[in-house]
Simulated assay, not measured.
Amino acid sequence: MHTMLHGFESTTTERLLLRPFRETDLDAVFTLHGDPETSRFNPSGPLRSLDAAKELLALWLSDWAKHGVGYWAVEQRETPGVVVGVCGVRHKLFEGRTVLNLAYRFAPRTQGLGYATEAARVAVEKARRHLPDVLLVAIIHPENAPSLRVAERLGLRFERITDYEGTPSRVYGVD
C-alpha cells in the first residue's frame, strides 16, 4: 500500500470522488488519454496504445509511492466506479526545478459541468496546505480556452509564455 502524504488520500467534493489511481484503472487511463478530443491540446497528442497507457499509469502510481501525492482518478459520486477524469498535482522537473504540476482532464461528455474547477480547487488547497514549499504551476496551451478559464477561476496568476515540449504554453502560478 502506498504511504499517502497526509491530506492527499481519497477525498470527496459536492459531486466528485477524488482518489489515487490504481492498477485496475488502466482502461480508464487509455480511454481518457487516447481520446483525440481530450488530448487536443496535449503536446504529445493522444495515447496510441494500451502499452503507452500502462507507462503513464506506472508513472502516476510511482508518484504516489515515492511522494505520497499524485494525480487523482475522478469519479462522479452518483456513478461510483466510473472514472470520468484525472486531476491533481504531481512532482515534475520543469525548467530545472521541481514543481507541483497542476493538471485536469475530463471525458468529453462531462466537460462544461465545472468538474475541473471543483476538483482542481481541492488540489490547489491541499498543495498550499501540505506542500507550501513546492511551487505550484499549471502549464496550459494558449488555445485551450476552457483550461485557461479554470486556472483563472482558481485564482492562478499568468506568469509567462514558455516553450513546453515544443509548444509555446502559458505558465500560471499560485500567489
Rank of each mutant, 00 (worst) to 15 (best):
M1H: 05
T3I: 12
M4W: 09
L5P: 07
T11A: 15
T12P: 11
T12H: 15
E14M: 06
L18G: 05
P20L: 08
F21M: 03
F21G: 02
E23T: 05
T24V: 06
D25S: 03
L26T: 00
V29A: 10
T31S: 13
P36H: 05
T38G: 02
T38C: 03
S39M: 13
R40E: 14
R40T: 04
G45P: 06
G45D: 08
R48I: 15
S49R: 10
S49H: 12
L50H: 15
A52H: 03
A52L: 01
A53D: 07
L57D: 02
A58F: 04
L59Y: 04
L59R: 05
L61Y: 01
S62V: 00
D63W: 05
V69W: 12
Y71E: 02
V74Y: 04
E78L: 11
T79Y: 04
P80L: 00
V82P: 05
V84H: 06
V84N: 01
V86E: 09
G88C: 00
V89H: 05
V89A: 08
R90M: 06
V99T: 07
L100I: 05
L102I: 10
A103Q: 12
Y104K: 06
Y104N: 09
R109T: 14
G112D: 03
L113H: 08
L113W: 03
L113R: 08
A116K: 02
E118A: 06
E118H: 05
V124C: 02
R128K: 11
R128I: 08
V134I: 14
V134W: 05
L135C: 08
L136G: 00
P142K: 09
A145T: 00
R149S: 13
R153Q: 13
G155H: 14
F158C: 13
E159N: 12
D163M: 15
G166C: 02
T167A: 09
P168Y: 08
R170Y: 11
R170I: 09
V171Q: 14
Y172C: 08
Y172W: 09
G173H: 11
D175S: 13
